[in-house]
Amino acid sequence: MTEHAESPIGTYLAVFVTLLVMTALTTWVAFHDWGALNTPIALAIAVFKGSLVVWFFMHVRYSARLTQIVVVSGFFWLLILFSFTLSDYLSRGMLPFPGK
């Protein structure tokens, strides 16, 4: 079992506060124009928040290497779905024939 002697409350509270601040930040950022960076900023903050939850609240920090591989491969397969589907959508219309 995952035994760690020191109390995690301090860490948990720090993560909690960071998550709240990040939520406020992502909202504030959305009301200002950063051009092409609008979506990347929003996604970067979301990935950071999600990683904090996975790493600290879900104990992946203390987990076996296998658990860490499972987590990473889940997101890796999601990326396969996204990137190969987008390889179609983003390269449509690159040939001068209608529909191609």
Partner: peptide, 11 residues
């Protein structure tokens, strides 16, 4: 289908 030719080549 109307999948792009480039994606078709990769696949």
């Amino acid at each position: 289908s109307s999948q792009s030719v480039y994606a078709g080549l990769v696949f």
